[in-house]
Amino acid sequence: MSMTPSIIRTYDLWKQYETEGHDGMALRGVDLSIGKGQIVALFGKSGSGKTTLLNLLAGLDEPTRGRIEIEGEDLGALGERGRTLLRRHKLGFVFQFFNLLPTLTAEENVLLSLELAGRPDERLARESLDLVGLAGKEIRFPHELSGGEQQRVAIARALVKKPPIILADEPTGNLDSATGAQILALLTGRCRDAGTTLIMVSHALNTCEYADRVLRMTDGRLFEEISCEGLAP
């Protein structure tokens, strides 16, 4: 286990969805501790509960049972308003389908994140785009960018506010392998530079190479993997 202090802790986390026909149990007693600045890769088959865990950590969903602590704060006790503030200041999100706002330019999408954090700074937004290799493309709208470029904007949007944690849900799932590798290098590199904790949910095995720690989910249960080899099908 990690020697660094924990930034994320979960205790006996369960999540059940209301579905017809079966019990819909997505998580079954997940206990997890992630240290500050750790880069974690979370693997698992479709429906194993990876995204559910990520959504719970982001406070987007509530567990059926159990507790989550982010920097020592109990998410359940924070309430809706508290969880919103948490996402604003302490969490960055990178999605598989980029999820940029189509009506905002690249720079405005990044600026949006700063604005929500209460620190609107256009210079910082431009610098952040520069850092992900998008200098000169600030005024382009998402539909004018390639998939890889859109994901770079999403990474800039997540990084710009310097959150202690970034959650990435299949960040390369919608990209070709070469672009995917570039994005992984960029994302992990920037997180290491900034000391940001990164949790990446992924199917792509090469993600493992960029991680300090590898986790695997099977049927809602979490297992620690010692090496990348154990993930091979």
């Binding site: 999820n99 940029l100 994140s113």
Partner: peptide, 16 residues
């Protein structure tokens, strides 16, 4: 709807 979901995920409040 999708934009609203993204905004909520990245920290916008429902009020906003």
């Amino acid at each position: 709807r999708r934009d609203a979901g993204v905004l909520l995920a990245i920290g916008a409040s429902r009020g906003q």
